[in-house]
Design a protein around this nucleic acid. Sequence first.
RNA 1: GGGCGGGUAGCUCAGUUGGUUAGAGCACAUCUCUUACACAGAUGUGGUCGCAGGUUCGAGUCCUGUUCCGCCCACCA
Length: 899
Amino acid sequence: MPETSLPKAYDFTTTEERLYQWWEQAGYFQPTNDPNKPGHDPSIKPFVISIPPPNVTGELHLGHAMFLSMEDLMIRYMRMKGVPTLWVPGSDHAGIATQLQVEKMLAQEGLHRDDLGREEFIRRTWEWKHKYGGIITRQIRRMGSSCDWTRERFTMDEGLSRAVREAFVRLFEKGMVYRGPRMINWSPGLRTAVSDLEVEYSQEPGTLYYFKYLLADGSGEYIPVATTRPETILGDSAVAVHPEDERYQKYVGKMALVPILGRAIPVIADPYVDREFGTGALKITPAHDPNDYQIGQKHGLEFINIFTLDVKINENGGPYQGQDRFECRKRIWADMQVAGLVIKEEPYQLNVPRSQRGGEIVEPMISTQWFVRIKSMADAALEAVRDGRIKIVPERFTKEYYNWLENIQDWCISRQLWWGHRIPVWYCADCGKMTCTRTDPTACAACGSTRIEQDPDVLDTWFSSGLWPFSTLGWPEETPDYRYFYPTTVLETGYDIIFFWVARMIMDGLEFTGKIPFETVYLHGLIRDEHGQKMSKTKGNVIDPLVVMNEMGTDALRFSLLVGSTPGNDTNLSLKKVEANRNFANKIWNAGRFVIGALEQAPAEPQAEPQWTLADSWIWARLQHLVRETDRLFNVYQYGEAGRQIYEFFWGEFADWYLEIAKQQIAEGGDRAYYTAYTLVRTLDTSLRLLHPFTPFITEELWGHLKRAAQAHSERLTPAGGWEEALIIARFPEPKPLEGWEEQKIADFTLVQALVTAIRNVRTEKKLPPAQLIPAVFACGSRLRLVGEQSSVIAHLARLDPSAIRLEEMLTEKPEGSVGLVVAGVEIYLPLADLVDEDAEKARLQKELDEVLGQITRLEGLLSSPFAQKAPAAVVGKERQKLATFKETAERLRQQLDG
RNA sequence: GGGCGGGUAGCUCAGUUGGUUAGAGCACAUCUCUUACACAGAUGUGGUCGCAGGUUCGAGUCCUGUUCCGCCCACCA
């Protein structure tokens, strides 16, 4: 075969970069039917995805790689279907995370943010953003993500900040945000409140401390109480017992003395107390425990805050003032021991609330914060999913969604940070009223005083993320983009942020735009290591997607993430898997080289009408089947299964079988070579189209070569729709209805495959060198014609001597000194005189016969059972056919044994 | 305490309207540098689909129970 114009090896490093630039510059990432351009047709429904915005200063990890692969797959598929597609990219300012990083950087200079002041700190953070914000977007490109960079957004850019402001003001005006003291989770290191979702609980060994609450009457009687946090004793304002607890009933209404401090507090009765747990009596710290907070409200108890904002004991802690919370825990317990108030301590499994960021222990505190009154929004969001306007894939997550929204608490949205959207509320120093407007006020709206000051807090990052699907399209302006592309189509993300993000977008979308923000929520699973372990730096099992891409190519990584996983299920990724897919890319490339080589060798024009061989028809039928399957699977979000089937077709059928046969057909020259090249080109072209959404780079590159080679060869090789400019915008194969001939051709070829495999098997067993061609005798029975027509193909694939093949319908006697085998009713004799061991042959044949007889017994049993009447005729027919074939095979095996 | 997912070949996983001999990759064994590919080809070994019932002509697939692993929510001091 002559040298092709294709390089021997595919160099993904340079190719990926080159192709990405080409795609982007050619404008393929931008939607067709752009609403900002003339000729726009609003009746064509677009396909739109907003990217889950990564942290602006973050770096690409496998989670990103996963959603980028998945979303790009969807976008490329729809683009190839001819739908106007828009994938909006962008990044998130990620308040806490970014601020922490900048603070870390400042710490290296020996600085604290307080040293800089708010304004300077924000300036430094923007500087940081400009310096590192490009890293993640470059890495997104690296993944091949075909998003429209002309529409890139950032949560703190001007437009989005305006959207945030608008949203807050609307809520304010409707009375749906309020400010007030509530129990919140205080993150001491970060010095900010965090929402309930940002707290994670971890099981840790600790101690349960038992001690005495002495009664104030001097009787010396006491109520035993247990706690895991002795320092909170300083903030106790009651001791609670169960109203029906006989042990303690008598104390209810009396006063008890807080240890060390000697403060008198009431003994109250409340059914919340669990009599079985601990001592059955409960200390109540309304200012530092969420449950105690409620009891405190119910009973009108005193709320005693004992902590400063960096969780040191404050003036309410008497002698302990100034001590750290854990220091105080030790000290107070030691002092109580001295005072004889201690009963015992025992080991206890604690459930410690820790901050999702930084991992420090979160302290429940009462603090004045901003909250969103969420109930009505939650109800609307529930309704949108319940009535099917929004569909969640996989469905099981709808239950989780319902459960969360049904039990939702008001959302604490203020953060005591500097990096973020500042709360647009001003307080008047004179009248104390709040002013909240769309533009910065210069005077108090109530009294006109100019002595106003803006709220120092910023909004939770997720407040702006919740607006993402529409804020990125121009909302609150009715821009052409907003009108045409909103609501978006699919929201694709990991199931771990359903509550953080997905539910909030739905609530916000309905609240602010009156529309659902997207039609479908597609949730992918988390990426774990090859043994299902979570990847973590401490375990050292982290796979860096950039390293993988450098070593094996983006396509291999993408294919690995997309195939072999089902929606919503976690995926285990190993380098072995990526390697296997790198090998697949290599296979694609080399199959491409073969096809192009074949094309260059084939005549430009056929002399006659097409004469298709069985192999031609077979691969075409299999390809059509694959196109139908891909279409079906894509429609039900089964992308992984679709990818797997394409892989198996390409490697297991096209490359392993058809290409081998094609070699022989091409060697025949003439029309046979022409039509073979034609089939190769068509099949490869279609396969590349199917594969493109999975592995965009290698398919685009190879397809370009294929197109040029085909164009150079002849007009006749042009596909039905013409050769498009680029594969990225080429038409995705449309399924065609099953044609009558397809199944028969597939069945026929399956027999050829079975015969070839059986002969190869014998060759391997007998250790025949591959180069040695051997004679064969076939007794074909009813398949005489088929085997006859395919004998040269069989000879080629099974390395038989084409000039020494004998075909019969029936043999009267077995050829001397030969190995006999029976495949689907066809007898094959391989005369291997000196290699044949008669006894071993008999034993082998007997074994096969036994197996076949077993099958016959099974099928006869089946067909005489109610199955024959109750199962559909087609199913029964298939079994009958099988039985007939087995009987034929058994018959022939018997003859061989006898002969 | 409530809910969800998973248990299929040595390992990692597919198997979505139930159709009757359960698939792939990796690993393993044997052979082959056959002119697309050794990142390959050929052949083979390997599974009573966690366990027990049930529905059905037929169950990896549907139902019930059970066990183990993982996750989410709630947060009894």
